[in-house]
Nucleic acid binder design. Sequence first.
DNA 1: CCTTGTGAAAACTTTCACAGCT
DNA 2: AGCTGTGAAAGTTTTCACAAGG
Lengths: 213, 213
Amino acid sequence: MRKTDKIRIPQETIRRLALYLRSLRKLSQQNLTIVSSSQITNHLNVTSDQFRKDLSYFGSLGKPGVGYRVDELIEHLEKILGVDSERRIILAGVGKLGSALLAYPGFLNFNFRIVAAFDNDPVKIGKKREGIRIEDISRMREVVSRFGVRLAILAVPAESAQSVAEKLVECGIRGILNFAPVNLDLSQKVYVLDVDMGTELMALTYFSRRVLL
Amino acid sequence: MRKTDKIRIPQETIRRLALYLRSLRKLSQQNLTIVSSSQITNHLNVTSDQFRKDLSYFGSLGKPGVGYRVDELIEHLEKILGVDSERRIILAGVGKLGSALLAYPGFLNFNFRIVAAFDNDPVKIGKKREGIRIEDISRMREVVSRFGVRLAILAVPAESAQSVAEKLVECGIRGILNFAPVNLDLSQKVYVLDVDMGTELMALTYFSRRVLL
DNA sequence: CCTTGTGAAAACTTTCACAGCT
DNA sequence: AGCTGTGAAAGTTTTCACAAGG
């Protein structure tokens, strides 16, 4: 099955590709060059069948009877996900959560680099955090086009989330990782991924009680 | 359909219940007492059909031709999710992310209270952050049983995540909200929910490029 | 006439099982 | 003999459409 076919790829498949990538990096560090689907999914909550099915949407990447070349597969997955070269992102909202995200090492590991941070607090503007200058929102458009930024992390308070998100879209942002506990109402051209810790905790409460039964 | 029936409730239904709760709180603030399914899902990416189907797993909570009583439905949902009374949680790892989570206002809104924080850095132990004392891990068991804690937030570095998670389970924790980018290998009795910002960003990269096509 | 609750159909995702390559 | 790739089957979730209640 080729990329060019019009077959819909399950959304969950994409999320799992990122997990496979993490797993492959680990195997690579262990100096393994060829691995099987079960080695890759060994410490993931995914079956090797699922893994092979997921990959099959993108073509034949392994060798029957042998397995997968680690470096080759990493390259392939990075390309599919679009993280094969540096992705520049901006951060909106440099409060406690925003500051923590600025310092989060997990982003750099996957080729993401925060190139600028924005806030509306005059006290913060002009200062640096983690080596990144905090700018006024008025400079957003310029930064986005200069660095070719397509993704943003939104970490402002709930009240201002919608308006800041609109500003992001105006400036050309195409994907938003939203930490504010509100449902953003934006153009269909922008992809929004919500990370809502309150919602997660509620789901966790429910499931953790069920497991016992 | 009654709770007692052995019908499997979709996991996504549970996540959406939390969203409905958020929406209902807002409607309640607007002094609405009776609302329809479409009012509730109006600003959510969920259809009113989906909403009614989701609720149908838990019985008949609305009145045909009329709608739902806001306060009654809020109470119902809180009970289903298990957030109708205060839920005490602990935090493991008071680094930048952990500190930000300590200050996160979204938890209190939904009856979650962080009762203690743990870290292995001797410099931090004994100090207070956001009014919460940072304790040594050795005191975890005592705190968990004294406060009747069942849930934990794990915000330690990837290297120590597995061992700290095991400690949490030992102390009686039944649900873990895991911010470390590793797959935790734990007893089936513990429910783990992963919040992996790196994975999310990669998925976002993929989807935000696709939307354009 | 409006809105809920829900079977039934449709859509989607995962698991199975095995043909085929090394 | 071992492992991949993939149709087909099974399982799950969402959407549809409408009967029944206010």
